[in-house]
């Protein structure tokens, strides 16, 4: 009964309990912002867990973040930002009734989503392969398993540059936390001298970092998936020409959601990948 009423002064999209489009639009908008607030507070829990463990056990984070690939994380950040840009432009296209442009922009946005998840998959798979997981599943290859340094350097693709560029400086600065046991490139550390990445002895409870990493990126990934489904839905509708200057609320709201997903990643990236 909410979509009925084609009567005078009542456009098809206007629900019976609203007086006019403006009231309905601003109500939807407020509703969406409230929903985004709940999303922020949902993630807040993970940020709290992150903050507590990072501030009380910085050594875990400094040690573990070398296993993350800043390059891939950075590219993913850019992919997501670009898709946010096409989404914002898409809202404009909907507002102006530029149907073809809207379809194109939404498709690009969707593509961005796929790109992001694809890169995420590569990162997840590498961690899975090396046992860099949560809790009791955290079981990184022990040194004895290595058949050769070169193979290892290739395998752990997510941390190729860290030891060469950042590690030596960092190690000098944090001598009490991370003993400077080795500074060589990946795979050259003699077995028994800590991990092959050259960041010193492994601190206790490193698995907590990976628990937090997978929770944060996993929950974010689910949101990306949900956002992509929503974009796919409005993409189909916009092909049929459902949106124009008089009615573009769904595009606007899905856009808000997509930007929020982007917003959260903007914070996840430096917190997880760029640790000092």
């Amino acid at each position: 009964m909410t979509d009925s009423h084609g009567s005078e002064g009542h456009p098809a999209h206007l629900q019976h309990h609203f007086d006019n489009s403006r009231q309905q639009f601003s109500a939807s908008k407020l509703g969406m912002w409230l929903f985004l607030a709940t999303e922020i507070l949902l993630f807040a829990g993970l940020f709290v867990a992150y903050a507590v463990y990072r501030s009380n056990h910085p050594e875990i984070f400094i040690y573990a973040h070398y296993f993350l690939d800043t390059k891939l994380g950075g590219i993913n950040t850019m992919v997501l930002l670009l898709s946010s840009f096409t989404m914002a432009w898409g809202v404009r296209a909907a507002q102006l009734g530029q149907r073809k442009l809207l379809v194109a922009l939404l498709s690009l946005t969707l593509l961005g989503g796929f790109g992001f998840l694809g890169i995420k998959y590569v990162e997840y798979e590498a961690k899975w392969k090396h046992g860099l997981l949560w809790g009791t599943n955290y079981n990184p290859e022990s040194h004895d398993d290595h058949t050769g340094a070169d193979e290892h350097a290739e395998e752990v693709e997510e941390a190729p540059t860290a030891p060469e560029t950042g590690a030596p400086d960092r190690l000098n600065l944090e001598p009490t936390v991370v003993p400077p046991s080795a500074t060589g490139p990946a795979g050259t550390v003699p077995p028994g001298e800590g991990l092959p990445h050259g960041q010193g002895a492994e601190p206790d409870n490193v698995h907590i970092f990976f628990g937090i990493y997978f929770l944060m990126t996993g929950l974010h990934g689910i949101h990306v998936l949900v956002g992509m489904s929503l974009i796919f839905w409005i993409l189909l509708k916009s092909i049929g020409g459902a949106y124009g200057p008089k009615y573009f609320t769904p595009v606007d709201l899905v856009g808000l959601y997509w930007h929020l997903v982007d917003l959260i990643w903007i914070f996840l990236f430096p917190l997880l990948y760029l640790i000092h």
Partner: peptide, 11 residues
């Protein structure tokens, strides 16, 4: 509609 109608424009 492709034209920009200021009266119906919300947002």
């Amino acid at each position: 509609a492709t034209e920009h109608n200021h009266h119906d424009q919300v947002g």
